[in-house]
Design a binder for these strands. Structure first.
Lengths: 212, 212
DNA sequence: GTTTGTGAAATAGTTCACAGCA
DNA sequence: TGCTGTGAACTATTTCACAAAC
């Protein structure tokens, strides 16, 4: 147990949560690092080492209590509370994000949406009323939004990111295919399926061409 | 220049493509590793080292010819051809994926879609007719699909992945929030926004709690 | 003068292997 | 006996720093 945990370690905790949740729902009460690792495709020693950054959660000779570890990890990640999110850009993609049923059950609730298009302002999508961009800063502060999802066209994305940062948002999930810039202290993560596809083709191209 | 390139290196090439494309569209013909790095948030030495795995593309004292490097990287990643994709699962999420306008302009074309729900089979989404799952293997082979996108509920995802692998698909982009298993030689990448959110909350929770 | 390409050095991350405990 | 927790060993990745090229 120590300070300054590597980012890779933090990024694996959600996977452990995922695997443990499946076990929990399957009624399995106890699991060891080998079985959890096999399920997630992660080395058992990796799991034990990662957990050791945060404490001692297992019992030697037995393994980990699934419910207990799930609770501990949820607390470590701050998932024991509800997080309020805003969506910026309510075009095709933004609407799909707002309609996505996967956020709420995992503790992430969309409570505000913004667009600059007059034609959609005032309408409701999934029970959330779309507001004008000019109301972003005030609404974000008033509703205590701390995560924003950017779903505007690439050309406007950086501008929107800047506005969000200025409004006090410290975590941004960006769907626009640009590499945005944020000041230190703000987290920006990109979601771009094309980026994933473009590295897969590297390996596809190789297994097609090389018959060696 | 050498064999066996690290995966991290391959995963950065699409980012270079992205940055170079922006420069190209901005009419900039020449770029050095420092400027490209600043734009992408990557160290200049990292860029030079990554490129050196594949060859020598720059001119000392000058930098890189944007169009030239773009072409080289596209070829390396196999982006100089069109890739045909199939979508499995045409619910809310699957339809959003099929409607997404970001694939085609970057060389990825959806040419087939499958679902097991009788009510949607036969309908068209974005000009592609939805077929029954039973036709998957034959259609994938006939149309030369080599990438599949999985957008079925978690409970069916592994089953669908197995079917795709059996049908000869070597690259799968999985939107279901499970950690699927594939045999060696098949690439499976997951897209799960919640996973990204769950690690962002770790840092959010810390900057809220700790006033230290 | 400028910037690449690249070994060598430094850092980060993973895996081993085993003492310690149930 | 079985499995965790963890330093130590190993491997991978990044960064440095500079000769070579223009």
């Amino acid at each position: 147990m120590q300070r300054q945990i590597p980012e890779v370690v933090v990024s694996r905790l959600p996977m452990y949560i995922r695997g443990l949740t499946e076990l929990y729902q399957g009624g399995i009460a106890l699991v060891n690092s080998g079985d959890l690792g096999a399920r997630l495709g992660i080395a058992p020693a990796q799991i034990r080492k990662d957990l050791s950054y945060f404490g001692k959660f297992g019992r030697r000779g037995r393994g980990y209590n699934v419910a207990l570890l799930l609770g501990e990890l949820s607390q470590i990640l701050g998932l024991d509370r509800q997080w309020l999110m805003a969506v910026v850009g309510v075009g095709r993609l933004g609407r799909a994000i707002m309609d996505y049923k996967g956020f709420a059950p995992r503790g992430f609730k969309i409570v505000a949406a913004f667009d600059r298009d007059r034609k959609v302002i005032g309408r409701k999508v999934s029970d959330v009323e779309i507001q004008d961009m000019s109301e972003l800063e005030a609404t974000v502060k008033e509703k205590n939004v701390n995560i924003a999802i950017v779903a505007v066209p690439s050309s406007e994305a950086q501008e929107v990111i800047d506005l969000l940062v200025q409004s006090g948002v410290r975590s941004i999930l960006n769907y626009a295919p640009i590499c945005g810039k944020v000041p230190p202290g703000v987290r920006l993560e990109g979601i771009d399926p094309v980026l994933a596809l473009q590295s897969m083709t590297y390996y596809l191209a190789r297994s097609c061409d090389d018959l060696s």
